[in-house]
């Protein structure tokens, strides 16, 4: 079946098998592999995208559900070829190791700061509690969010 959607502002269309997730279609059919396939059951947040402006796991959105909707992936966060300040902060704070969780965490942190410009530590922890990281123990990820928030 055919679906049409906007990814990072660009209109896209794809022929999909009805059982495919939005994650699969982004990665394998539309050329946006930035969202990651870590658990495919909504338990790790690595595939996080903004779906009509809301933070969701793209592995749990049926591709056909995205027909006519807007998706922003990690590839679409920067502007004019510059990194988003959250992306810069992740690099500067050492919040990246293997990096497999990073795209999802960056999207989740961008979503947090969009709703709460200066979150406290508890708010950062709760906002990122749907994103697993196996490498960092999270400390430098929290540093990065604080750095990006300027707090």
């Amino acid at each position: 079946m055919r679906i049409e959607l906007r990814v990072n502002g660009e209109p896209c269309e794809a022929d999909v098998w009805a059982g495919e997730s939005l994650l699969y279609v982004l990665r394998e059919r539309l050329g946006y592999p930035g969202s990651k396939n870590a658990c495919e059951q909504g338990e790790c947040g690595s595939c996080s995208v903004l779906y009509d402006g809301k933070l969701v796991c793209s592995c749990l959105v049926l591709a056909a559900q995205a027909d006519g909707h807007q998706v922003v992936t990690v590839e679409g966060l920067g502007e004019d070829g510059r990194l988003h300040r959250v992306q810069e902060a992740f690099v500067a704070a050492g919040a990246v190791q293997c990096g497999f969780c990073t795209p999802g965490l960056v999207v989740a942190a961008v979503d947090l700061l969009a709703h709460n410009a200066s979150p406290n530590d508890d708010e950062i922890r709760e906002a990122l509690s749907g994103n697993l990281c196996r490498c960092t123990g999270y400390a430098k990820i929290f540093d990065a969010v604080r750095l990006a928030a300027g707090t």
């Binding site: 338990e43 933070l55 796991c57 749990l60 709760e126 509690s129």
Partner: peptide, 9 residues
Amino acid sequence: VGGPQIRNR
């Protein structure tokens, strides 16, 4: 329930 991503959906 889950994390924010799950609560949003």
